[in-house]
Amino acid sequence: MQTRGHPNRLGIRGWVGGGRWGFERYMYTLHRLSGLALLVYFTMHIFVTSTRAVGPDAWKQTMSVVSGPLFTMGEYLVFAAFAFHAVNGIRLGAIELGFAVGRPIEPVYPYQTSVGGQRRLARAVLMIAFVVALWGGLDFFVWK
């Protein structure tokens, strides 16, 4: 749309700008960020494993670079991002197919919205993602 006044589109600020209203907005933002993180990891992963095709020495050398504690931490963060992205993705898939949002109702004050309707689902998603991430944490750092 062509500009017809002073531009006032929020841009990226709009992803974090809310929050006084509902935490689903933060889930929206986190979903995007975790998605981008997984994409970056995936690209790196392809690059790292492709060194195996060059030869055993190149592979060993790359593995020695990516096996430090910093990378373990990074890998764990990727795992946590995956846990959230996967479970939240199921919630979004269900909601986008019209589940858990409820039927149209007569809007009588105080208004009930579909956001409130799926709130329990959103809480469950956060809890499951947390448990999976915790379990992953134990596996990464304690049980090894």
Binding site: E96, G102, P107, T113, V115
Partner: peptide, 28 residues
């Protein structure tokens, strides 16, 4: 393009719940 941030429905002063309309539209 809507990923159910739900903010539209939270702020709507008339209780229209556009987020619900959009999800039901996708279902259709």
């Amino acid at each position: 393009r809507c990923h159910f941030a739900g903010e539209c429905s939270q702020v709507c002063p008339k209780g229209v719940d556009p987020a619900k309309a959009i999800q039901l539209m996708k279902r259709q």
